[in-house]
Design a protein around this nucleic acid. Structure first.
Lengths: 125, 125
DNA sequence: GTCAAACTACGATACACATCGAACTACGGC
DNA sequence: GCCGTAGTTCGATGTGTATCGTAGTTTGAC
């Protein structure tokens, strides 16, 4: 059966992922997504990449299982923080910086700056 | 029994409230506190007051019961977003802007700006 | 086709949270 | 002392969430 059992897939087997449009990104959802340490780690990693650069889920060393990782990536995607696309066996992820900066100017930078400052105070987190 | 049954009260009946020190304010807790619409409304109201100005809980018209209001104010206080002090029968609340701006420069303003922008797009929220 | 790698789905679990109503406490005024 | 106002506490409830393990799907390589 084509495309069965795949979250966000249309009838044909193309493996597409649903993303909220820029206008549908909600501030509360973004703040909630950022309030989890695992997800903040993901965002921190992606924000450290070059503009538009992608990374597979496996590139980030998270202290949780793969199924939990899938969960967190979905929360980030549905909140509008990241964009994901299948490329071969990997699922490439990039941060939606342009959308975020347009909707919430300075928010992402403020969070990343605050997070970096805290991490420099408390060496290992 | 002196001071029994009062959250954060010391042995003598003085009704003191515990607040985290500036250094103990955690970014995740702040983001989580801001990710609830009721609490965001409280912060928006307090941020609109003059510098250092206080307001009683009852000054904000929230669409929840008093016990739920108590809950949200406690979340905000324990996250380090607000400072509360008893004054007569009222509990006066002020935003901890200096602490927040020192720890997370630009974060509160970015959230408030984004919230204001969204509220101007969607008139009633 | 077979196999391994990458990721997903599902069910379970344990915990956190937003909400309420009802009963209670603290304070100021009469 | 009595009462009203402001806020708290407690228990309950329904919902959300972070986590896991196991089993499954998809894809590229062989």
């Amino acid at each position: 059966m084509a495309g069965a059992g795949c979250e966000g897939t249309s009838t044909v087997t193309v493996r597409t992922l649903d993303h909220p449009a820029r206008a549908d990104i909600r501030l509360e959802a973004v703040l909630h997504a950022l309030s989890d340490p695992v997800r903040l780690q993901v965002v921190r990693f992606l924000a450290g990449l070059a503009e538009g650069e992608e990374a597979p889920c496996s590139a980030i060393d998270l202290a949780v299982t793969k199924s939990t990782t899938t969960h967190h990536f979905r929360v980030l995607r549905e909140a509008g923080l990241i964009h994901q696309v299948y490329r071969g066996t990997a699922k490439m992820t990039a941060i939606r910086r342009a959308d975020l900066d347009a909707l919430f100017p300075g928010l992402l930078d403020a969070v990343l700056t605050a997070d970096a400052a805290r991490r420099s105070r408390v060496p290992v987190g």
